[in-house]
């Protein structure tokens, strides 16, 4: 009897998927499982998870949830709210700055200028993020490039306090995340069927009405993808706030990172990291449900 072609196909599919599963399983699912495990342990003096002797009494005593209870402390909640606010503001600013840029490159720029412009949006990736954010210190510090320029122009008398402020963190975040907004927006605007714009004009809509009723709604997948790509790294960000925000601009990312390093409480860090993951997932799922119910263009 001949080999069942479906079985061959199945085996081929398993074979082709194997590398993906190994990478996903080894580098994502396994660490996630470890993180979940660690978050339910008490810390020892070195900050590592301490083995639990009697799980029965440990669970009964309620100590298993100790890390989660700690994470609800007002100090931490304030950090979480600040992170959320900053991530939302960064996303909105990136959208406001990135949309016109993507629109120009995709729909208005002459054909021979598109690729150079896109390259400009991508070129920053050639330099380490750490170095680029450090460079902002040179721009924003008291005797930095920006203050020097403003004083030279006689717009200000004494340097503005920019470094180590939430504003500096926001500037750094917007700067760092902007390409992640521009690229998906460009992709969705680029594949927009131009005859739809002509059809809109033909039916009586002016340029701004066409944008409102055709261009923007049809670019929603790009808007959503861009916002997700900016928001998620934005809320977990710790490098920018570390380098530009000073001690008073701690974000949830810094909080998690600290627990694993100088804070010496890996279980607490694991608990907060999981809370952040679950919160972001919950937001994405809520959006997906809403999008499905309203029939909006879902990009997820």
């Amino acid at each position: 009897m001949a080999t069942n072609p479906n079985r061959v196909k199945d085996r081929l599919a398993i074979g082709l998927m194997a590398p993906t599963w190994i990478v996903l399983g080894g580098l994502f699912l396994l660490p996630l499982a470890i993180l979940i495990g660690v978050s339910f342990h008490p810390p020892d003096d070195a900050g590592n998870p301490q083995p639990v002797d009697h799980w029965g009494s440990y669970i009964q005593s309620g100590d298993w949830a100790a890390n989660y209870v700690t994470s609800a402390h007002p100090v931490y909640v304030r950090v979480a709210i600040r992170s959320l606010w900053l991530a939302v503001a960064t996303t909105v600013l990136c959208l406001l700055i990135g949309y016109p840029v993507a629109f120009y490159i995709a729909l208005a720029a002459p054909a021979n200028r598109k690729n150079p412009l896109l390259a400009l949006a991508v070129i920053p990736f050639w330099t380490s993020f750490l170095i680029r954010i450090s460079a902002w210190r040179l721009i924003l510090q008291d005797d930095g490039a920006l203050n020097t320029l403003l004083i030279w122009l006689h717009l200000i008398d004494s340097p503005l306090k920019l470094m180590d402020t939430p504003l500096a963190v926001m500037i750094g975040l917007v700067y760092g995340e902007l390409p992640f907004m521009i690229l998906p927006l460009y992709a969705s605007l680029e594949k927009l069927d131009r005859t739809l714009l002509e059809a809109s004009a033909d039916l009586g809509a002016s340029g701004s009405a066409t944008f409102r009723r055709v261009t923007f709604p049809l670019s929603m997948p790009g808007v959503i993808a861009g916002c997700v790509l900016v928001f998620i790294p934005g809320i977990g960000q710790f490098i920018v706030s570390d380098l530009l925000g000073g001690s008073r601009s701690m974000l949830i990312g810094n909080l998690i990172q600290n627990q694993f390093t100088s804070g010496r409480d890996k279980p607490l860090g694991a608990a907060v990291a999981l809370e952040l993951t679950v919160a972001v997932l919950a937001m994405l799922i809520t959006y997906a449900i809403w999008a499905k119910r309203t029939g909006a263009e879902a990009a997820l």
Binding site: D193, L196, A199, D202, G204, A205, S206
Partner: peptide, 30 residues
């Protein structure tokens, strides 16, 4: 005179229907 002020309408070769709108809203667009 821009397209949106002309007393003409065009039926496009590949129809150019708005994919995000229902039939009724496509028709009521103008």
């Amino acid at each position: 005179v821009p397209p949106y002020d002309r007393p003409v309408n065009l039926v496009f070769q590949h129809y150019a229907l708005f994919p995000h709108l229902t039939v009724a809203r496509n028709i009521s667009f103008g």
